[in-house]
């Protein structure tokens, strides 16, 4: 399961998450969503540190964050 889950339909491609990610794993994708925006995309789920910066700056509440816990 993804650590960084981006709701592509909610994303407006503002790029704020890309600018704040300390490990640089977010990019603006080449795809278009249904409303014509190119959504943000995570390039390397395993590198996510769960710092939450992307979710904090996202004005569209498009990002959810998860972390594995050992059972």
């Amino acid at each position: 399961m993804e650590r960084v889950s981006i709701d592509e339909q909610q994303c407006k491609s503002c790029g704020l998450c890309v600018s704040v990610c300390p490990v640089k794993i977010l990019i603006i994708s080449d795809r278009l969503n249904a409303r014509g925006f190119r959504p943000a995309q995570c390039t390397d789920q395993d590198k996510c540190t769960s710092c939450s910066s992307c979710a904090l700056v996202c004005p569209d509440i498009a990002i959810a964050l998860y972390r594995e816990v050992k059972a």
Binding site: M1, R3, Q9, Q10, R35, S50, S52, A55, P59, D60, I61, I63, A64, L65, Y66, R67, E68, V69, K70, A71
Partner: peptide, 19 residues
């Protein structure tokens, strides 16, 4: 046997519409 802990999810008070 891996479970995912929620770090951040949408609030319940949010109606989940595109603004």
């Amino acid at each position: 046997a891996e479970e995912m802990k929620v770090i951040y999810e949408r609030p319940r008070s949010w109606a989940n519409k595109v603004t």
